[in-house]
């Protein structure tokens, strides 16, 4: 039963474009789906390796800008040497976005994992801010605050066999497919040798090192996969909204991803999905109830605090425990006391 449930769910979700006629709901589902992909990628770092990376939106944004720039083409002068790229097909631009984001993840992983704890967190924030400043100020390349506009939509094939992802139903299917593939990739990694090594270093880094696990290597691998996946989410986003501006790098988006992951349950496969659905739909429901955006954000902030206090492992583990009929008092419950979290 539980083996088929996820697939049943996928089939159900895949059928949505056939009966959902309200495009606005479809719009929300698409953006939610894209954010879930980003949250899943963050979960790999935050949940499975235990690194609180608060610069994650940088990878999302780099993916978005790379794909937008390659599909639009650009012309810049680097130290008076002109350098230009003619517009590339969108599928190629999206592929490059994944590669560039993954490569950035590798470089940042190499650099940032020299430090841990608070230093790592601040370095990750700084990285995202520097990228944002470049996006704001390198007007020649990024158009700065004027935003990259008229980004083409994805089309595959030509002529009669052209498949366009301009309309909402087709784009929804694309986003859902990418989300399912991302989920499978993460599930495979987590259940592999690399996943167990990551787990070991999350629980006790010194111990993991002493038994011969190359900690930094696994951290860098996790960062590359995570960054590439976030880059893919960014590329999807950019060809859906078809405009990208430097605010895509704002810290608040990282915070949104973090909230999704910890609410759903960090270090669980379903966690980011549950968190993503909640925080994808709640803002729209609040907006429909004519609640001011400020109040919505205050609710977010307070919710985040309450979850850390009362549901530190998130919703999914809580439901699993309820399902399994476990009683408080075992080690799972003990971990839910904030003070008992490691150290």
């Amino acid at each position: 039963m539980s083996r088929f449930l996820p697939w049943l769910l996928v089939v159900l979700l895949a059928s949505v474009p056939f009966w959902m006629t309200d495009y606005y709901v479809l719009h929300i589902m698409i953006t939610t789906c894209i954010f879930i992909i980003a949250a899943m990628s963050l979960n790999l770092l935050l949940g499975y390796t235990g690194q609180l990376s608060l610069g994650h939106v940088a990878f999302f944004g780099i993916g978005a800008y790379t794909s937008a720039l390659l599909s639009l083409g650009f012309q810049v002068n680097v130290f008076n040497v002109p350098f230009g790229v003619t517009p590339k097909p969108v599928w190629f631009a999206m592929l490059m976005a994944v590669i560039v984001a993954g490569f950035t993840g590798w470089a940042i992983g190499k650099l940032a994992f020299r430090v841990r704890g608070a230093y790592f967190v601040i370095v990750s924030i700084s990285f995202a801010e520097v990228v944002r400043m470049v996006a704001v100020n390198w007007v020649e390349l990024t158009q700065g605050p004027m935003a990259l506009n008229n980004i083409p939509a994805l089309t595959l094939g030509t002529g009669e066999f052209e498949l366009s992802f301009l309309r909402k139903p087709s784009f929804y299917s694309l986003a859902l497919a990418v989300a399912v593939i991302s989920y499978i990739i993460i599930a495979r990694i987590v259940n592999s040798r690399a996943g167990r090594a990551m787990n070991a270093l999350r629980e006790n880094e010194s111990l993991a090192m002493s038994v011969g696990i190359d900690v930094t290597r696994y951290l860098v691998i996790a960062t590359i996969v995570s960054a590439a996946m976030a880059g893919m989410a960014g590329a999807l986003y950019t060809h859906y909204i078809r405009i990208v501006d430097p605010d895509v790098f704002l810290f608040i988006y990282t915070v949104t991803m973090v909230i999704m992951v910890i609410t759903g349950g960090k270090g669980t496969l379903a966690g980011p999905i549950v968190g993503g659905v909640i925080f994808g739909f709640v803002p729209e429901a609040l907006r429909a109830m004519a609640i001011k955006p400020e109040i919505q954000w205050i609710i977010y902030g307070v919710l985040m605090i309450l979850i850390v206090y009362f549901l530190p492992r998130g919703i999914v583990p809580a439901i699993e425990r309820f399902w399994a009929g476990q009683k408080p008092g075992d080690d799972e419950a003990a971990r839910s006391v904030p003070g008992a979290l490691q150290k």
Partner: peptide, 20 residues
């Protein structure tokens, strides 16, 4: 989860139509 999404989506639509 699907159900949850559906409920929330329809809640949003309902609330929206109440306002406008």
């Amino acid at each position: 989860m699907k159900k949850l999404a559906g409920v929330m989506a329809s809640a949003a639509i309902l609330a929206g139509s109440l306002v406008t």
